[in-house]
Design a protein around this nucleic acid. Sequence first.
DNA 1: TGTGTGACAAAGC
DNA 2: AGCTTTGCCACAC
Length: 123
Amino acid sequence: MKRIEGRIGKGNEKASVFFQKAYRVVSQIPKGRVATYGDIASALGISGGARAVGRAMSMNQDTRTVPCHRVVRSDGHVGGYAKGFLAKMALLKKEGVSVDDFNRKIIDFETVRFKKFRKKSRG
DNA sequence: TGTGTGACAAAGC
DNA sequence: AGCTTTGCCACAC
């Protein structure tokens, strides 16, 4: 966990353990795939704590350490982004995820949806 | 200890 | 199909 711990320290020293775990789960999302806040929360062990996850994402300023842009809403909406949903859609499209610029929603959401999270990074 | 907030989620109209 | 309301969690004051 120290790996991320150091990264988070980059202006986010207030990050709690819960946040660090959230970042770790999000970082598990492979390229070209997306996940929902609820799934992230569930992976962390808190079902219904989607909002808490959202907070963790918002708190994260290092978009390079954590691919928070791969986290979208359960309804397929791209959701928000520290840099703006525009940047979020751009990143997703660059990775191969089809996004609707008009409705700002993920195309084939259920297809690119990644929910094969693991509780421990040890595999 | 209690209240307010936020990149959410599900239900109701 | 779209908006509004309520519920949830963890954090900050």
